[in-house]
């Protein structure tokens, strides 16, 4: 458990690290209480870069073809768009999933302990046509990829 806790503190990133780290170290907080520190500011951010910065500590990412996003070209249902993110990178500790055109772009942050593969799937709501963005933190560096998903009224097919 000890190692696990330390990892978590590390994962939580820059600013909060010291104080939370202290709290955990001092036995004041259980791991589940650490978990409760839901990243409010990142999830409530309206701009993509603010959301990324809030989620992963830095708004600047380098595009990478090592990340593959599996999402439909045209969504079958904008309310349920399946997205899978896979990274062919070592040392991945976090994956953030964003929907560019949503009012609050950040959808999810996945924290991956060592041994967990950078390969996660979930489903997101998309109000309109736009990009799904994946940001992957690997060995402390941020990489990103995008995939356009069209949201359509549908109907009238041949």
């Amino acid at each position: 458990m000890k190692l696990d806790q330390k990892r978590r503190v590390f994962l939580k990133g820059s600013v909060a690290a010291t104080s939370v780290g202290f709290a955990v170290g001092a036995g004041l907080l259980t791991p589940s209480a650490v978990l409760a520190a839901w990243n409010k500011s990142a999830f409530e951010a309206k701009a993509v870069d603010k959301a990324i910065g809030g989620a992963l500590g830095n708004p600047t990412t380098s595009p990478s073809d090592k990340i593959s996003i599996k999402a439909p070209d045209i969504a079958e249902n904008g309310a349920v768009v399946p997205v899978s993110i896979k990274a062919d990178l070592d040392g991945v500790t976090e994956i953030a999933l964003l929907v560019e055109k949503n009012a609050n772009p950040l959808s999810a942050i996945f924290h991956l302990p060592k041994g967990t593969l950078p390969d996660v799937s979930t489903r997101v709501k998309m109000g309109k046509t736009g990009d799904v963005i994946a940001v992957v933190k690997a060995n402390g560096k941020l990489y990103s990829a995008r995939k356009s998903v069209k949201v359509t009224i549908g109907g009238c097919g041949g």
Binding site: A75, N77, G157, G158
Partner: peptide
Amino acid sequence: AFPYTPIANPR
């Protein structure tokens, strides 16, 4: 199969 069946036709 037609890739957009649940969009062009009822899901």
